[in-house]
Write a protein that binds this DNA or RNA. Structure first.
Ligand SMILES: [Zn+2]
Length: 308
DNA sequence: CGTGTTTGACCTGCGC
DNA sequence: GCGCAGGTCAAACACG
């Protein structure tokens, strides 16, 4: 516990230093790729309208343009151009600072822990340069894809979080590029409340590296149902059913199982479990990607050839 | 072991 | 200030 607290503190400190360059999303313009606009309409008032996702407002921006893709758009085009919508937003890209601080964090952490005198006096990357109070704006790409195309993402993503979103019954999952050496690309996936067969993916930033051809080890790419022990609270004996392999994380059972969680008022695990069981029955194999999306034969990492 | 997911706790911005 | 909501961290697992 002490250690935990300690690390927390360290984390805080680090964050403190970099908080000034927090991400800021200012949607400058939208590029709409194909037909109808996503159905975010009305997703906000479900919860009393206290806080609709910012997407809601943005989606109604009158100005839609159809030109001016940037690299990212081009990159993803081959994958998603069919029956998908890509909305592009551009803004000033985040400077290298943010990328540095992540790596720095570890180093600093390390140094601070060592009491042998080799501590690294905090190298502040700080606020000094934040003379312009304008918060950081990062490049963002939003697109709507169907389930099938959801896993056609060639990049390798590692999930680092999932949260229920206010306006929508479906949770939103957060991914980051697994070749995270310096890559600050993030991606968030959420199911469209209006058309549940569609997903909204939001990419932030661009990859600063090539498309990986192969993964070092394909371990951990599949996951079966199991129960994870809970340190403190014995709430729900969460069983996580299945998760999909790495490159196409998407439709995690959690995504669907946690549907309506907020609606049923978080009664107990009873309902929750029930749902999970159902989900487990329907998608309880590593074949979840096969079943859901039978398009792609069975390639794992050689898409680069396809790509070119 | 290295890599990936799950998940509760934590952080931060924002509105009241 | 407090509380909420979105975003992130990291310990604990899982898997090959
Ligand atoms: Zn990357």
């Amino acid at each position: 516990i002490a250690q935990k607290a300690f690390s927390r503190q360290r984390k805080n400190k680090i964050k403190e230093e970099t908080k000034s360059q927090r991400e800021r999303e200012i949607w400058v313009r939208w590029l709409i790729w194909t037909n109808d606009v996503p159905g975010y309409s009305g997703s906000g008032e479900r919860s009393g309208g206290s806080c609709l996702p910012f997407e809601t407002a943005s989606f109604y921006e009158p100005e839609m343009e159809t030109t001016g893709l940037d690299e990212l758009g081009e990159l993803y085009k081959p994958f998603y151009s069919f029956s998908t919508q890509i909305i592009l937003t551009s803004s000033v890209s985040v400077p290298e600072d943010s990328r540095i601080f992540r790596d720095d964090k570890k180093q600093r952490t390390h140094g601070c822990l060592q009491s042998n005198g080799s501590r690294v006096d905090h190298v502040r990357i700080t606020k000094s340069k934040s003379k312009k109070s304008k918060k950081n704006q990062q490049k963002r790409v939003v697109e709507q894809v169907k389930e099938e195309n959801l896993l056609s993402d060639a990049w390798a993503w590692r999930k680092y979080g999932q949260k229920p979103i206010k306006g929508s019954p479906y949770p939103r999952s957060y991914y980051r590029c697994s070749s995270s050496k310096g890559c600050l690309v993030r991606k968030q996936v959420e199911r469209n409340p209006q058309n549940p067969e569609k997903f909204t993916i939001t990419y932030t930033n661009e990859h600063n590296h090539e498309l990986p051809t192969r993964r070092n080890s394909l371990a951990g790419s599949t996951r079966a149902k199991s129960s994870q022990p809970k340190p403190s609270i014995t709430k729900k004996s969460g069983k996580q059913v299945v998760s999909s392999p790495t490159s196409n994380p998407v439709i995690t059972s959690a995504d669907e199982s946690s549907v309506a969680v907020q609606d049923m008022g978080i009664s107990e695990m009873s309902t929750y479990q029930a749902i999970e069981e159902i989900e487990g029955m329907s998608t309880s194999l590593p074949s979840d990607l096969l079943s859901g999306i039978g398009n792609f034969p069975s390639f794992t990492g050689d898409f680069d050839e396809l790509f070119e």
